[in-house]
Amino acid sequence: MSNTPTSDSLITTDVQTESTDRSAVSGATAVAARDLNVYYGDEQAIDDVSIEIPEKRVTALIGPSGCGKSTFLRCINRMNDMIDVCRVEGDVEFGGKNVYDDDVDPVALRRKIGMVFQKPNPFPKSIRDNVAYGLEIQGFDGDVDARVEESLKGAALWDEVKDQLDSSGLDLSGGQQQRLCIARAIAPDPEVILMDEPTSALDPVAASKIEDLIDDLAEEYTVIIVTHNMQQAARISDRTAVFLTGGRLVEYDDTTKIFEDPEEQRVEDYITGKFG
C-alpha cells in the first residue's frame, strides 16, 4: 500500500492517478434515492436523503459509525424488510423503478443486486457450491462450471482455489473467504454490488487485494461501498457521499472534490480527522 496519510490531510496525489481510467463525470443513473427517510421504531436512521448513484462507477459512502450508511445500503436491496421495526418512507429507484412499489418482489429484486458483508460469510459448503449458490436458487440452465470459473476469476481467486473446488469454503483464509463471497455475489451477474465495509475484518494485505478487485469490478458493475477507511474511499471510488450523524447526507460529489476541496466545513473536519 503506497498511501499513508499525511499529517494534516488525507488527500494524496494517488487519488487522481488511480482513478483516471474512469471519468468521474456521471453517466446513466443506476440507483437513486428520493426523499428517503428510514426509522427504526421511533428513532430516525436516514433523514431525507436524495442521491443519484452513477452506473458502472464505484461510489463510496463514508461517515462516522451509526450515521446510517448500512441502513441506506440495505434500503437498496430491501434487506431492511427483514428487520421488524424498520420503516422506510420515500423512493429508492433502481432501473427506473421504485423498489418499494407494491408490485416489486423483494426476492426478485435481490437477484439483480449482489451484496457483500462486513464479516466474510461463505456457506459451509464446497467452494464450487458457494459460487454456484445464486445460480442454483435461480434455476440457472447454462453451464454452471464455466460460470463458477468465470466468477472466481472475476474475484481474483481462481488461481488460488482451482485445485480445491470441492473443499469447504470455510477452509480458506479470511481474505480468500471475502473474495469467495464476492465471487458468489457476481456469479448470477447482478447489475449492482453493495459492499458493507468489506475489508474492515481483514488484514491490510488481504484488504488491498480486495481494493484492487473493486477497481476491476467497476468495469462491469455499479459498486456501492460503505467504508470507514478514508484512504480506501479516496483510492478506489469515483464518487463519495458523506453521511453525518442523524442520517443526513451532507455532501455528495466526485471523490477528488470531496477529498481536496469539500464545500462543507464539517466534511473537511471529518475527513481530516478532527471529529468522527
Partner: peptide, 27 residues
C-alpha cells in the same frame, strides 16, 4: 445457525424456503 449465513442467502435472492432448505437445515 449464525444469522450471517441466513442474511448471505437472503441477499442472494433466495426465498425463505430456499434459505431454510439450503443453508439452515444442513447446518
Amino acid at each position: 445457525v449464525p444469522d450471517d449465513l441466513r442474511r448471505g442467502s437472503d441477499a442472494m435472492g433466495a426465498t425463505r424456503w430456499q434459505t431454510t432448505k439450503n443453508v439452515v437445515l444442513p447446518e
